[in-house]
Deep mutational scan, measured.
Amino acid sequence: LGPKYVGLWDFKSRTDEELSFRAGDVFHVARKEEQWWWATLLDEAGGAVAQGYVPHNYLAERE
């Protein structure tokens, strides 16, 4: 699936296409579209919880 990303700060969605998340949440990014990335929010087991657009500057690649 490629690298995983972690949320740096809490983010509250403003549209139906955006995905709310908390700092520390883990994502798989499917598409990078300039300022907004289409991402899947993952649970602790790595299963998909939700999908939506997230601001790229709120995520960091997980080491």
Score class of each variant (00 low, 15 high):
41 L>F: 03
5 Y>E: 00
38 W>I: 08
47 G>Y: 14
55 P>S: 04
11 F>T: 01
46 G>E: 07
53 Y>K: 12
25 D>L: 06
7 G>T: 04
28 H>R: 09
11 F>A: 01
4 K>V: 15
14 R>V: 10
49 V>P: 01
6 V>C: 09
16 D>M: 08
24 G>A: 01
55 P>A: 04
12 K>W: 13
9 W>E: 06
13 S>E: 02
38 W>N: 00
27 F>I: 05
27 F>P: 00
26 V>L: 14
35 Q>I: 11
51 Q>P: 01
34 E>P: 10
32 K>C: 07
52 G>C: 06
37 W>I: 03
41 L>M: 09
41 L>W: 04
23 A>V: 08
24 G>Y: 03
1 L>V: 12
16 D>K: 11
10 D>Y: 07
15 T>E: 08
56 H>K: 14
42 L>P: 00
3 P>N: 11
42 L>I: 09
52 G>R: 03
62 R>N: 10
23 A>H: 05
54 V>I: 03
56 H>Q: 12
36 W>N: 06
4 K>H: 14
28 H>V: 14
33 E>S: 08
2 G>S: 12
30 A>D: 14
1 L>S: 13
44 E>C: 10
19 L>C: 06
14 R>S: 15
8 L>E: 05
51 Q>A: 12
4 K>N: 10
21 F>M: 02
37 W>A: 03
48 A>D: 08
26 V>D: 01
49 V>I: 12
35 Q>M: 13
58 Y>K: 04
49 V>H: 05
57 N>Y: 10
59 L>H: 04
25 D>C: 08
44 E>S: 12
13 S>D: 03
22 R>A: 09
50 A>D: 09
30 A>T: 15
21 F>A: 00
33 E>G: 14
49 V>W: 04
27 F>G: 01
10 D>P: 06
36 W>V: 07
33 E>N: 08
12 K>F: 14
36 W>K: 09
4 K>F: 15
56 H>I: 09
41 L>T: 02
61 E>H: 09
35 Q>L: 14
26 V>H: 09
7 G>V: 07
18 E>M: 13
19 L>T: 01
9 W>A: 07
4 K>G: 07
20 S>G: 06
19 L>I: 10
3 P>Q: 13
19 L>P: 02
7 G>S: 14
58 Y>F: 11
1 L>G: 12
60 A>G: 08
12 K>T: 15
58 Y>I: 04
56 H>G: 15
34 E>V: 10
62 R>L: 15
25 D>W: 05
39 A>S: 04
36 W>L: 10
35 Q>C: 14
28 H>M: 11
31 R>T: 07
8 L>T: 02
15 T>S: 13
45 A>V: 11
5 Y>K: 00
6 V>F: 10
7 G>C: 08
36 W>D: 02
41 L>C: 05
26 V>K: 08
2 G>K: 13
58 Y>T: 04
7 G>L: 07
50 A>T: 07
48 A>S: 10
34 E>H: 11
61 E>A: 10
11 F>K: 00
18 E>R: 05
3 P>C: 12
24 G>V: 01
23 A>Y: 05
57 N>S: 10
61 E>Y: 11
58 Y>Q: 02
14 R>Q: 12
51 Q>E: 15
36 W>Q: 10
29 V>E: 02
45 A>F: 14
29 V>C: 05
14 R>H: 12
60 A>E: 12
20 S>R: 01
56 H>L: 07
17 E>W: 13
2 G>F: 14
3 P>A: 11
38 W>Q: 02
54 V>L: 04
53 Y>R: 10
62 R>C: 15
30 A>L: 15
61 E>N: 07
35 Q>T: 12
31 R>S: 09
43 D>K: 00
21 F>T: 00
48 A>C: 08
34 E>I: 08
47 G>T: 14
60 A>D: 06
59 L>P: 01
55 P>R: 07
30 A>G: 13
58 Y>W: 06
18 E>Q: 15
62 R>M: 15
48 A>L: 09
59 L>D: 04
56 H>C: 15
27 F>C: 05
31 R>I: 09
28 H>G: 02
53 Y>F: 09
53 Y>E: 01
57 N>Q: 10
56 H>E: 09
23 A>T: 05
24 G>L: 06
3 P>Y: 09
22 R>G: 05
9 W>M: 10
41 L>N: 01
22 R>L: 10
9 W>D: 04
63 E>K: 12
62 R>P: 10
25 D>I: 06
4 K>T: 15
53 Y>C: 05
30 A>M: 15
62 R>D: 13
